[in-house]
Design a protein around this nucleic acid. Structure first.
Lengths: 145, 145
DNA sequence: TCAAACATCTTGACAATCAAAACATCTCCG
DNA sequence: CGGAGATGTTTTGATTGTCAAGATGTTTGA
């Protein structure tokens, strides 16, 4: 009855997407609590950590979806607290490169482990046969969105 | 090669979850732009709209995952801008019930349509045969998380 | 009845964010 | 080559979202 016709599938999916989003959001909040970092700050560290080849402020701002003005204050705080540092760009004197400090890298790695744990929990909800199916489907969706 | 062993599946899924989350987040931002509402405000309206049986401030705060103190200011602004109103609880004089105004309901409905459109776009990335599969899997995941 | 629990609001503080403007630097066209 | 326009960053001023702690009023249960 919930999945018989296309219209109700759409409604159902809409609710599921919202619930999923909210659960991830509060999971992130919980995981980040006690690190002294906000979710937004952790997100910045994640992006820098995943790149590992110093990004410019502009690039990081784009990845985060914020203006460079917002990023200035955020990176300023993260730098003050020793999670990352700004270094001059070798060839473009307008630009600064953002990199993780040792402390920043440590937090990044730990957080990444949490994400892997989350993925495990997600997969645990599915039959082994469904797991690759789901990953593939989500891949298609992310590519399309 | 990316999906052969369980470990890399976990890594892959982790990336996909992050990407999916980010895409939903920026989609929401874009959809809300120009309504005069922030994503957080729209979210509050959505929750009230979906319930439709007036919630108390406390309940709404729990659904949103914020303290009642935070909610006071948020609802205050939404009330000032005519999206919702506070009415005294019939039997508990400590409580206030939050309901949508006509204007609030109008925005709620429009936003809900956007969500349905998003769901459609998500489904469009999959073969018809996969669609119910995906909805079911996401349902299991959300239930488990 | 009255103490404890509860619902809300207020206050004070800070983080996140934007837009717009100020600077410095770079690039490219004439 | 030189200057105009593009680009990258920061600053400033404003708004929103958030919390914790405390104030106020209400309800509940022993």
């Amino acid at each position: 009855m919930t999945t018989k016709n296309p219209a109700s599938g759409r409604e159902e999916l809409s609710h599921l997407i919202i619930s999923f989003y909210e659960k991830i959001s509060s999971w992130e909040h919980a995981v980040v609590r006690g690190t002294g970092l906000s979710p937004a700050q952790m997100h910045a560290i994640e992006i820098v950590g995943h790149h590992e080849q110093s990004l410019r402020m502009k690039e990081l701002a784009e990845h985060l979806g914020v203006t460079t003005g917002s990023l200035t204050v955020m990176v300023g705080r993260l730098e003050q607290n020793g999670f990352l540092e700004r270094r001059p760009h070798e060839s473009d004197r307008r630009s600064l490169l953002v990199t993780l400090t040792g402390k920043g890298r440590k937090h990044f790695k730990k957080h990444h482990q949490y994400h892997l744990k989350l993925s495990e929990d997600v997969l645990a909800a599915l039959e082994p046969a469904e797991q690759q199916h789901f990953i593939k489907a989500l891949g298609l969706i992310v590519k399309r969105l």
